[in-house]
Amino acid sequence: MTAALPLRCGDRTVGSYVHRPDLPARLSPRPYLHPLTTLGGAAVTESTPHDHRHHLGAGIAVPDVAGRNFWGGRTYVRDQGPTELDNHGEQRHLRWIRRAADGFTEELSWTADGERLLHERRTLRTRLLSPTAWELDLSFTLTNTTAGPLRIGSPATNGRPGAGYGGFFWRAPRAAAPPLVFTADAAGEDAVHGRRADWIALAGEQWTLVLRAADPWFVRTREYPGVGPALAWRDPLTVPAGGTLTRRVVTAVADGRLGPGEAAALAARTTR
């Protein structure tokens, strides 16, 4: 049975964290944030859309962990392309360390074929930025629980250039027109995809997301609206036995379509 935790920012409910999802194996079951909204109530996430059923709002998903799929859907196989494989893993909620209206800290297990590959500690907090914007601050640490090194890859590291997705990913709602995407010095999917930038903005007609992270940005606007920092953009990561991998993504969620100057000002107000 699906279980979810309401998420609040100040006196507003801004969404829900589904920590025990009831999902088929092909979707790589995992906790996710959906629905999320602006303070004014505009939807900013989409889950199981018709174009990619395995897109689950906003959350952490990795397409290749030692050959196991924690992203959902087909697996990209070198010299073969997207392929249906029985290799899907699952992120299992283990326990709450902290749970409050404005966020939580939890522990999770990443398992596949009965084997635990990773232990995760995930922390999320919300914060009010202005009367029209709030902040979602998410960090996670993955610890390799296997006896040897663990390879984290992506379709790009397996032979599909430009498809280095994996890590934190935000699936935004589809609309009649694609959202705008820009950084401080570039605009458009082709200009920002695969680049590093202190912040990136995805702007729909009624909402704007301003994300900050250290990894290269994976961006889609024409095929579907989605954005996230990529763990393995071009080269795989290797986590040694007992080793850890830590990332943090801070997202400002604002009402309205912001321009570059407004997005830069909002990024400057987010937690560093």
Results as ranks from 00 to 15, higher is better:
Met1Ser: 15
Thr2Ile: 05
Thr2His: 04
Ala3Tyr: 09
Ala3Met: 11
Ala3Trp: 07
Pro6Tyr: 04
Cys9Val: 12
Gly10Val: 12
Val14Gln: 14
Val18His: 03
His19Val: 03
Arg20Ile: 07
Ala25Tyr: 01
Leu27Phe: 08
Ser28Ile: 06
Pro29Asp: 08
His34Phe: 11
His34Glu: 10
Leu36Glu: 05
Thr37Ile: 00
Thr38Ile: 09
Leu39Ser: 10
Gly41Tyr: 04
Ala43Asp: 13
Val44Tyr: 02
Glu46Arg: 10
Pro49Ile: 06
His50Thr: 14
Asp51Phe: 07
Asp51Pro: 04
His55Cys: 11
Leu56Cys: 11
Ile60Leu: 14
Ala61Val: 09
Ala61Asn: 07
Val62Ile: 15
Asp64Pro: 08
Gly67His: 03
Asn69Val: 12
Trp71Lys: 11
Arg74Tyr: 08
Arg74Gln: 15
Thr75His: 14
Thr75Ser: 15
Tyr76Gln: 11
Arg78Ala: 15
Arg78Pro: 01
Gly81Val: 01
Thr83Ile: 08
Glu84Leu: 01
Glu84Asp: 04
Leu85Asn: 08
Gly89Phe: 07
Leu94Gly: 10
Arg98Pro: 00
Arg98Ala: 15
Ala100Gln: 01
Glu106Ala: 15
Glu106Cys: 13
Glu107Thr: 10
Thr111Trp: 00
Ala112Pro: 01
Arg121Ile: 02
Arg122Ala: 11
Arg122Ser: 12
Leu124Pro: 04
Arg125Glu: 08
Arg125Tyr: 00
Thr126Trp: 02
Thr126Arg: 05
Ala133Asn: 11
Trp134Tyr: 15
Trp134Phe: 14
Leu136Ile: 08
Ser139Phe: 01
Leu142Ala: 09
Thr146Gly: 12
Thr146Met: 07
Gly153Asp: 09
Gly153Thr: 03
Ser154Tyr: 04
Ala156Gly: 10
Ala156Phe: 09
Ala156Ile: 06
Ala156Ser: 14
Asn158Cys: 13
Gly162Cys: 13
Gly164Met: 00
Gly166Leu: 09
Gly167Trp: 12
Gly167Asp: 15
Arg171Tyr: 12
Arg174Leu: 13
Arg174Pro: 00
Pro179Ala: 13
Phe182Lys: 14
Ala184Gln: 01
Ala184Asn: 04
Ala186His: 04
Ala187Asp: 01
Ala187Gly: 05
Glu189Arg: 10
Glu189Ala: 13
Asp190Gln: 10
Ala191Asp: 03
Val192Tyr: 02
Ile200Phe: 03
Ile200Asn: 02
Ile200Cys: 02
Ile200Arg: 00
Ala203Ser: 05
Ala203Ile: 04
Gly204Ala: 10
Glu205His: 05
Glu205Gly: 07
Thr208Ala: 07
Thr208Met: 06
Arg212Gly: 05
Ala213Gln: 05
Ala214Gly: 12
Ala214His: 09
Trp217Ala: 05
Phe218Cys: 10
Glu223Arg: 14
Glu223Lys: 15
Tyr224Phe: 11
Val227His: 05
Val227Gln: 05
Gly228Pro: 06
Pro229Glu: 02
Ala230Asn: 02
Ala230Gln: 01
Ala230Met: 02
Arg234Ser: 06
Thr238Ser: 08
Thr238Arg: 07
Val239Cys: 06
Pro240Tyr: 04
Gly243Glu: 08
Gly243Met: 03
Leu245Lys: 03
Thr246Arg: 15
Arg247Tyr: 06
Val250Gln: 06
Ala252Asn: 05
Ala254His: 02
Ala254Asp: 00
Asp255Trp: 09
Asp255Glu: 14
Asp255Gly: 13
Leu258Thr: 04
Gly261Lys: 05
Ala265Asn: 12
Ala268Ile: 09
Ala268Gly: 12
Arg269Tyr: 07
Arg269Glu: 13
